[in-house]
Amino acid sequence: MSETILSLDDVHVSFDSLNGKVHAVRGVSFDLHYGETLALVGESGSGKSVTCRSIIRLLSKNASIDDGSILYEGKNILAKSQREMRSIRGKEISIIFQDPMTSLNPTMRVSKQIALPMIHHLHLSKHEAMKRAIELLKRVGIPNSEVRYKDYPHQFSGGQRQRIVIAIALACNPKLLIADEPTTALDVTIQAQIIELMKDIQKKNGTSIIFITHDLGVVAKVADRVAVMYAGKIVEIGTAEEIFYLPQHPYTWGLLQSVPTADEADEELYAIPGAPPDLIHPSKGDAFYSRNPYALEADRYYEPPYFQLSPTHFAATWLLDERAPKVEPPPSIQRRYATFYKKHGGKP
C-alpha cells in the first residue's frame, strides 16, 4: 500500500502568453501510493489541471515544464521522448476530463472509441477489441451494451457519456487514473453513481487515482489524502482527516468555511475575499498574503516553507513558525479541531 507509484518534486510549469509568462505551477511536490486516492482541491485557476496534464505531458504548445521531476514507478517522465510517452498514455496512466458532453468524438461509434486504444496498446485484433469494448461498456453500467455499442455519443445521456469516457480510460487497465473534475458537469445523483463506479473499479483493479474537484463534499467521499492548491502551489497536504479536522493554512480554513455543512446550517456561508492572484508577476512572499486575514509581515516578503505536523501532514504558512503570534482560527474551524480531539484524544 505504501509503495510510491508517482512522485512529483518541485515541478514548475509556465505558459507563454501575450501579456507575459504565466507561472501556472510553481513548485508542486507530492507522492502518490499504489491503490490510493489523492484529491487535489483549490479554486479555479490554481493549477490543478496543469499539474495533472504535466504528469502525462499533455500540455498545450505554449507550455513548458521549467523545473522539477516527475517519477512514475521510479522512472523520470520528463526525460522520456514523445514516443515513449505515447506508450504510457492510456496504457499506464489514463485521464478523464470534466465535460462528458464534449469529451467523446461525435462522429465515431462509442465502441470504436473504446476499442482503438486497445488495438493500439495491446495489439488486439479488431474483433477481439470490439468484444472487450462491449464488456467494458457493460462493466461501467451501460445497459444493453450488446446493442448500444453501435451508437454514437449523442445517443447517450450525460451520465452515460461519462461512463463511456471512464470505459475508454480503463480500456487498457491503467495503474494510475487521473480524474479531472469528472463529476462537475453532472447532476448530484449521477455524480454519486459515477463516484461509486470509480471506487468500485479502484477496489477491483487496485488503481491509484488523482481526483481533482472543487467539491469538498466529493473529496470527503473519495479521498485518502488531500492536497490543497493555491496559485500553483500546494499550500497544505495531509490525510483527508487531517485536512478536514486539523487544517492549518488560512486558505484551507477559507475553503472549509465556504462549504455548507449540516451542523452549522445556520451560519452564514463564507466566501474568500479578494481576487485570485496574478500568475504573471507572482509575489515573492506567500501568494495568499493579500487575501489572508491572518497574514503576517513574513508572508509578505518570504515564501513560507512546509512545516511538518505529522508524518503525513504538511502546511506552508508562517503561522506555524514558533516565533509567530498565536492566532485563533475561525469558530467553525475550532469546532472541527474539537471534533477531532474528542475522537482521538490529545490536546484540548
Binding site: 503576517l296 509581515e297 516553507p305 492566532v327
Partner: peptide
C-alpha cells in the same frame, strides 16, 4: 522541502500584517 531558510527570516516580521 522548501527554498526559504527559516532562520533567515527576521523575528520582527512575525506580527500580524495590515495589508494596505
Amino acid at each position: 522541502m522548501s527554498k526559504t531558510n527559516v532562520q533567515q527570516v527576521p523575528d520582527k516580521y512575525f506580527t500580524l500584517s495590515q495589508q494596505s
